[in-house]
Design a protein around this nucleic acid. Sequence first.
RNA 1: GCAGGGGUAGCCAAGUCAGGUCAACGGCGCAGGACUGAGGCUCCUGUCCCUUAGUGGGUUCCUGAGUUCGAAUCUCAGCCCCUGCACCA
Length: 897
Amino acid sequence: MFNIVDELDFKAIEQKWKQKWADERIFEPDPEERKKWFGNAAFPYVNAPLHLGHGFTYTRIDVAARFKRMQGFNVLLPFAFHATGEPIVGVAERLKKGDEKQIKILLDSGIPKKDISKFKDAKYTARYWEKVIKKGFDNLGISVDWRRRFSTIDPCFNRFIEWQYRLLRDKGYVIQGTHPVVWCSSCQSPTGDHDRLVGEGESPVNYILLKFKLPSGEIIPMGTLRPETIYGVTNVWVNPDVEYVKAKVDDEIWIISKRCVEKLKDQLHSVQIKGKIMGKELVGKVCINPVLKNEILILPANFVSPENATGTVMSVPSHAPYDWIGLKDLMDNPKFLDKYGIDPEEIKIIKPISVVKTKGLGEHPAVDLCEELGIKNQNEIEKLDKATNLLYKKEFHQGILRENCGEYQGLKVSQVKDDLSTDFQKINAASEMWEASGEVVCRCGTKCYIKILENQWFLKFSDERWKQKTRECLRMMKIYPEDGRKNFEATIEWLQNKACARRSGLGTKLPWNKEWIVETLSDSVIYMAYYTIAKYINSEKIEPDQLNDDVFQYIFHGTGDVKKISEERGISKEVLQKMRKEFEYWYGFDLRGSAKELIPNHLTFCIFHHTAVWPDKKKWPKAFTVNGMLNIEGEKMSKSKGNFILLLEAIKKYGADATRMALMDSAEGLNDANFSERDVLSWRSKLSSFYGLTKKHYNKGNVMLKRPIDIWLISRFQDYIKKMTEHLEKVENRSALTYFHQMLNDLHWYLRRNEEKNKTVVNYALEVMTKFLSPYCPFVSEEMWKIMGKNRFVSLEKWPTSDESKIEEKILKQEDAFKKICEDIRHVIELSNKNKNLYLYVLEDKELLYLQQATSFLKSEFGFDGVKVLKTKDPKKYDPENKSKRAKFGKPGIYIE
RNA sequence: GCAGGGGUAGCCAAGUCAGGUCAACGGCGCAGGACUGAGGCUCCUGUCCCUUAGUGGGUUCCUGAGUUCGAAUCUCAGCCCCUGCACCA
């Protein structure tokens, strides 16, 4: 076995340049005369080390920052750490309980056994991962100004959030209200998707309860999602074996399942149980349809679950497969009916009533569907559920109410559903209740239901004035790629009030109501402004107590008397003024990067909050860049698949530069990127060989007057420089990279084409290419810059600019034609199997000269003994003597012997 | 289900807005050759099929239909994939 021999010691180079950058503090910008460029990206959550997906997003913003830096901007790229919220508290709590899984996760992350217990302290966890994460950034070569680092659990940052929320509340953007959530009665908290054993993706849905009335005055509310079917009710169903309760609900007596009582209590109803009644006691009685006022028979059915809504349902056999099959079952089992003293004749006269007309479906679609699917009885739950879903969707989207639906006839089901619900409630024919869209079981094992939370704090994203400003900001912003814009637009329109406070987890307490903690998506939307002052908070050791709204108002809005604030808060006037200046200089930020999944939440919230906090449009965000997810070898990265790659591991294995190259080359735009070992290794050797090429050819040729071929290379480069710069301006890092390949191809051609190399031209090409590589693979680029004998950092060099006056179109065309001639020659050699002598017949003097200059190249390239370029006088008449008949303008005739 | 994005040769991917110059840039992989003691390094050439002294022809851009002299590109319908859908980072 042979080892892969790299010319380059990537590790040593990385170590060396990382150190030099830090020593010379070249990524620590302060306000100055030059124009600024402020880039940032969504900060990492500190419960795990960075993985390759982080590397992808962060390298993208770093390439942009490094590019801008070389363009001469004063560039700021800061990072901080996100620690607020539930997850790291969750780790601590699970450890306290001795959770084996959690212990294993930490051990797998490389934490020694003796240190595990330290992670019972959430703050320790946060600080621990901060260190590991920072190392990830540094090893990857992200050009971060660490003087501005902070964590969202720093008390000083908490003051900042307090200021933000007081300000928003004063503007009327933080309000109180009620809100339905999936609830675990055991944990006494909302059960988010990630907290569920069963039911990921299930959410609250609003049932309408139709109030059927017994002659005695008691109400049997029937839950449904299809209020229009009230017009098609033929009977109602109760489960004969279930014990129902009579309960006083607000001012009425309802007959409902026990489970329903608990739910209604948590949905803002007062509920008192007054008595019990078995389902079978109700069977055979009649009740009144609350809308049509006709008498309806109560029948028994086992498919009715006490777990769902009220535990009783109305029967609409024309449109509900369960109901049709239920009736059929009864007709097939007269004995069962006899048990309840019901005359089978009473069932036989029940006929389905159609209330919805749908294109492509018959009068009684449920009946047809049951037949089609061959459903025999109500035990075929799978088929029945399938049929129900199918019919519900089709009728909801395409169905039109029939003439028996009163004032709603002729309207579409989808249009009229909400109106029906409110109208029925107005006449007290209906009420409503919330139910989960499917079964949800909490991680603790408890079955969840829907609770309506009261006095919940909301960000009023529904506010039209606020939306208007947000739209305006978005219009002014650049979105890279532009395809992402529609997603933002749709989100702004769709966004409703968003709960912004929680009861548990780490975070900033709501300043006016300390029982609540600002929710973590809501405390991470304007923190980029905090970077501008964190430098002073850190260096001046400012204490949280010294920070209050006056301080922040002065810094961020320039209001108040500095002298007074300085005296009151014990922060020197100079420092306050510097902080103010720093903010004024850097803000608003020029580019923020993140993964595309944050568009509908974090990034859109970010726009909302900025427009609310800063009326001055100059402080608004200027651009976002979003990227797709990073796949590994074509598959989604996940721990269970075993293809989870930690950033530090990848760097160790492949080197930082090769990793960065592979990431940047993998995709751009909203498409998912793919990282493969093949590609990263290929980049590793490509970098190595380019380094070798540089070493071999830099400063090695002769100084001479420029020949056409020299001008050709320079001309080609002008176009590449222009295009790659344009792509980088749009954060199209992958597209820009293709021009590196083109440059390399051209340089190879140039070197092959000439025995004599023009030193000036080769040096120019290598310098341009090294500068161009620098944002992508900064370590190797610095090293190459050094072997070129340069003393400055290439990271701080001036970005190449294209000079159109250097482009000579004629020469470009000539060389293109020449390449084509070479292709033709190659083709003819192949077909003829001869390569002794080459004759080229041309029509023009210019062409003659150009080709004559290339004879030695043609000899060495194809192995000819002799090459002759001849001029023909008249292509038409020349024919007899010309051995090749194909000479045309711009295209010589070729003869080979 | 709703909203946004997407489906291009073995793989990744440009081209689609402004229809022809597109058998379709580039990279990876693969094949042959050069270099080499030897190479998995590097360089050159090729890479839909057939044919050929530098050519000519056939069939392609998710599927189906349409507009057009002409469609990867425009219209309609369908299938599939990715992301988000809220109190969760």
